[in-house]
Write a protein that binds this DNA or RNA. Structure first.
Length: 466
RNA sequence: GGCGGCAUAGCCAAGUGGUAAGGCAGAGGACUGCAAAUCCUUUAUCCCCGGUUCGAAUCCGGGUGCCGCCUCCA
C-alpha cells in the first residue's frame, strides 16, 4: 500500500507520488517570531514533523523546510514595544522557539530559513512578476494583480467575486482590484528596510514563503503544509505568486491541519484564549502533549482541556510502563515460548497502513495500544519471554516511537539520584523482610513526595518518576 | 452571501456498505503485607427524520446543533 494524502488542491485523498523517486521536498509554514508560540501553533510543528519522520522511515530522503517570519507588522510593533531592534526580537524568539520545539520532541528541520536572509531572492521574485505583468508598482509599493492570474482562488475554491462578497477589508483605491495584495512595502519611518528597484522597503508576508520554498526546494515541490487558517489568503497568494512567476505548478500536495479549540473557539493570539507551549510544558509532559496532538486525525479540530491532557498523560504512562516491563522481563532460557500471546506478525503492517491512509495517527496509535496489551500479557506477573519475542516487540516499539515520539526509551538517567534511590529501596526491602511495614511505607511515601513511584515486582522493586 | 468542517459510550477518539479499534475514567475479580503496575471480566446500535440497499455509523435527501475561512492568525 502506498501513502495517500488529502490534497486540499483537489479536495481528495490522493496517492503520494514524489517528483523525484525516493525524495520529498517538504515545506511547512513556521512561526512569526514575535512571541512564544502557543499549543495551537505547536500542532503543525508536531504533526508535520511526525509526517516527515514517517516519510524518512519509509526510506524517503526528505528535505524539510520550516521558515521563520522575522519581518512584518507584528515584528515591528513588538520590537518597538520592547524597545529593541527587530533582529534582536527575532533572535530572542527563534531561540525560544527551538527551546520549546526541542522540548516537545520536534526534530530540527533540514533548513530553518529567515525571511530577512532571503531579501535578494524575494526582490528577484517580485521583479519577475513586475516584468511579466503580474504585478504593478504604486508609490513604492508593489502589488500582485490578481486579475492577471486566472487560477486565483483555486486553492480556496472561491472565485474573486465570492471572495469579495464576504470581504471585510477596506478597499485601497490605489489597488486595481480589492484583493490585490502587497508583494513589497514602501518603507515607513523607523522601519527596517532594504534597497530595491522600487525604493527602500520590505517584503510583504506571502512572498517570503514562495521565495524561500522556490530557492531551497525548487520551483515545484511535493508537499506544502500549514494550519487551515493559512489556506486563504496566505497559501492562495503563494500559489499565485509562484505560478505566475514560473508558469509551473508550485506545490503538488497541499495539506492543512485543523485548529485547537479553547472553550469551543479557535485558539488564537488575537482572541487571547491561548496557552503557550512553554506554559503547557510546565504542566504536562511533552509525551502527553504529543499524544494529545497525534491522538486525533490531523485535519480534525481538537479541543484543549486539562482533562484531555490528563488522559493523555495516563495513556502515555501506560506505554512507558509496558516498555519498562518488557525491557526488564527475564529471558526464557528455553527461548521457544513467549507466554500466552505471541507477538503479532501484522502489527507493523497495520501501523503503517494507518499512517499511509492520510497519516491517520489516531488509528496507528490504536494499533500501538493493541500491541501494548499483548506485550503486557506476555510480561504480566514477571513472566519470562523468549529472546526473540522481546527483540521483535522492542523493534516494533522503537519503530513506532521513532515516528510518534510518545515515550522515553532511555533509562531513568540520573546516576546520582539512582544511587540514592537504590539505597532507600534496599533499606525498605530490609524493613519489609522483618515485616516492619510502617518503616517500609514511610520510605515509599517519602520517595513519593519527591515524585518517585516504587513498584514491587517478582524481580525486585523498581522505581520511576511520576 | 460564498466556501468548508464536525456531531460515535461518562470523557477523548478511530472507523466511508457487511452486524462498532484504541485510550482515559468507573465497577467486579486476580496478584500485593498494603499499594503501584499488570492481567481477566464489564459499559455504545453511532444527533433527528426519510430514502437507496439483502445489508448503512458509513451512500442520498431534509432537518437540528456546533465550529472555521472569506481580515493578522498554525
Amino acid at each position: 500500500m502506498a501513502l495517500s494524502l488529502f490534497n486540499d488542491l483537489t479536495r481528495r485523498k490522493e496517492t503520494f507520488v514524489p517528483i523525484e523517486p525516493g525524495k520529498v521536498r517538504f515545506y511547512s509554514c513556521g512561526p512569526t517570531v514575535y512571541d512564544f508560540f502557543h499549543i495551537g501553533n505547536a500542532r503543525p510543528f508536531i504533526v508535520f514533523d511526525a509526517l516527515r519522520r514517517f516519510l524518512e522511515a519509509k526510506g524517503y530522503e526528505v528535505t524539510y523546510v520550516q521558515n521563520f517570519t522575522d519581518i512584518d507588522d507584528k515584528m515591528i510593533n513588538r520590537a518597538a514595544e520592547l524597545g529593541i531592534s527587530v533582529p534582536e526580537l527575532a533572535d530572542r524568539f527563534i531561540a525560544a522557539y527551538f527551546e520549546d520545539a526541542d522540548a516537545l520532541g520536534v526534530r530540527r528541520p533540514t533548513h530553518s530559513p529567515r525571511a530577512t536572509m532571503f531579501i535578494p531572492e524575494i526582490i528577484d521574485l517580485v521583479s519577475r512578476l513586475v516584468e511579466n505583468g503580474h504585478a504593478y508598482v504604486v508609490d513604492g509599493d508593489v502589488y500582485f494583480d490578481v486579475k492577471s492570474f486566472p487560477d486565483y482562488g483555486k486553492l480556496a475554491k472561491q472565485s474573486l467575486d465570492d471572495l469579495l462578497s464576504g470581504a471585510r477589508i477596506e478597499v485601497d483605491p490605489r489597488k486595481r482590484h480589492p484583493l490585490d495584495f502587497v508583494l513589497w512595502k514602501n518603507r515607513k519611518e523607523g522601519e527596517p528596510s532594504w534597497k530595491s528597484p522600487w525604493g527602500e522597503g520590505r517584503p510583504g508576508w506571502h512572498i517570503e514563503c514562495s521565495a524561500m520554498s522556490m530557492n531551497l526546494l525548487g520551483e515545484t515541490i511535493d508537499i506544502h503544509a500549514g494550519g487551515s487558517d493559512l489556506v486563504f489568503p496566505h497559501h492562495e497568494n503563494e500559489v499565485a505568486q509562484a505560478e505566475a512567476a514560473t508558469g509551473k505548478p508550485f506545490v503538488n500536495y497541499w495539506i492543512h491541519n485543523g485548529y485547537i479549540l479553547m472553550d469551543q473557539e479557535k485558539m488564537s493570539k488575537s482572541l487571547g484564549n491561548f496557552l503557550t507551549a512553554r506554559k503547557a510544558r510546565e504542566r504536562f509532559s511533552p509525551f502527553a502533549i504529543r499524544l494529545f496532538m497525534l491522538g486525533a486525525h490531523y485535519r480534525s479540530p481538537i479541543s484543549f482541556s486539562d482533562e484531555s491532557l490528563r488522559q493523555a498523560e495516563s495513556a502515555t504512562a501506560r506505554i512507558r510502563n509496558s516498555y519498562t516491563e518488557l525491557v526488564n522481563a527475564p529471558i526464557d532460557p528455553a527461548t521457544d515460548t513467549s507466554g500466552p500471546a505471541d507477538f503479532p506478525d501484522d502489527a507493523l503492517e497495520r501501523f503503517d497502513a494507518a499512517l499511509e491512509d492520510d497519516f491517520n495517527t489516531a488509528g496507528a496509535i490504536g494499533v500501538l495500544f493493541e500491541v501494548i496489551r499483548i506485550v503486557n500479557q506476555a510480561t504480566a506477573g514477571g513472566k519470562s519471554v523468549a529472546a526473540n519475542y522481546r527483540e521483535r516487540a522492542l523493534s516494533f516499539l522503537s519503530y513506532v516511537n521513532g515516528i510518534l515520539g510518545l515515550f522515553d526509551m532511555s533509562g531513568n538517567g540520573e546516576e546520582a539520584l539512582a544511587e540514592e534511590v537504590e539505597k532507600l529501596i534496599a533499606e525498605r526491602e530490609k524493613a519489609r523482610s522483618i515485616r516492619d511495614f510502617k518503616r517500609a511505607d514511610s520510605i515509599r511515601d517519602e520517595l513519593a513526595s519527591r515524585n518517585i513511584i516504587l513498584e514491587d515486582t517478582p524481580h525486585g522493586t523498581r522505581w520511576k518518576r511520576s
